[in-house]
Amino acid sequence: MKYKNYLPLLLLFFTVTNLNAQQVVFSGQYLNFSAGTKIKTLYDNSVSSIHNTGLTAGTMLSYYNNKPNRRWWVEMNFDGGFYNSNYKNFPSIEHRSIDNIAGGYNIGFVAPIYKITREFYVWGGFSATGNYQHNNFLSFSNSSNNYTLLNNIGLNGMLHYTFNAIDKWWALEWHFNIPVATYYMRPGYSVNFIENSIGDKNLVSFGKSQQFTSKLKIVLPLHNENKIALEYNWDFYSLNTLNKVQYASHGIFVTAQFRLNRK
């Protein structure tokens, strides 16, 4: 992959980041706690030719540093739950077929790059994200443990709209992340034994690894400059190396945002 192709993008980014977009009311440092649930779909051709769908419960812990013309953050997330199979012709199989544990991180930075209206800005930036999915196929023997680890660097975008209602400033945000380079770790061609160092690992670009992360968030102001947010998250990844694996999730989260540097 020719990473130098992305250098002009970087330069472009730094030449347009002198906008002051964010309402002052949203400035500040915030520690955020989130809780919610995800509906997940999994397709993993190393172990199955069918899709599995499941429900997980999750939490996120994050730190946001907001300034009128910058935002950076560190986020860690964890969720766990069960997949059910979509078996149509196998009534004897257990309904709960896969245990799932997942976790990840997201370290990112965005700055306003385009003004649509006085309240509505496009932000752009970069992020490093990690995503680990561990699946335990309950009816399998040696190959019951299966995993996918993705570490990405990529581009970040945010549409940020602020509006006044009920005498308060609210915010509507849509974040999206598209990795351009991914280091992955997966089981080998036909071996899923996690303890063996035979796994498949490599650095790949967008051709073999596609990932989209999207977060739609409405932020409601509370007293004492704290906030509460309702989030809808959509994640998707597709890694097509030795065995294709695809994953999608839809999540609803409630986030409590605690202002750290209150005036």
Binding site: K88, N89, S144
Partner: peptide
């Protein structure tokens, strides 16, 4: 040969040696 499993389109489970 150490066996692993694979789920066919109808949900039937195939086990086979892979080492």
């Amino acid at each position: 040969g150490l066996p692993v499993d694979y789920t066919l389109p109808n949900g039937w489970q195939l086990r086979y040696s892979t080492t």
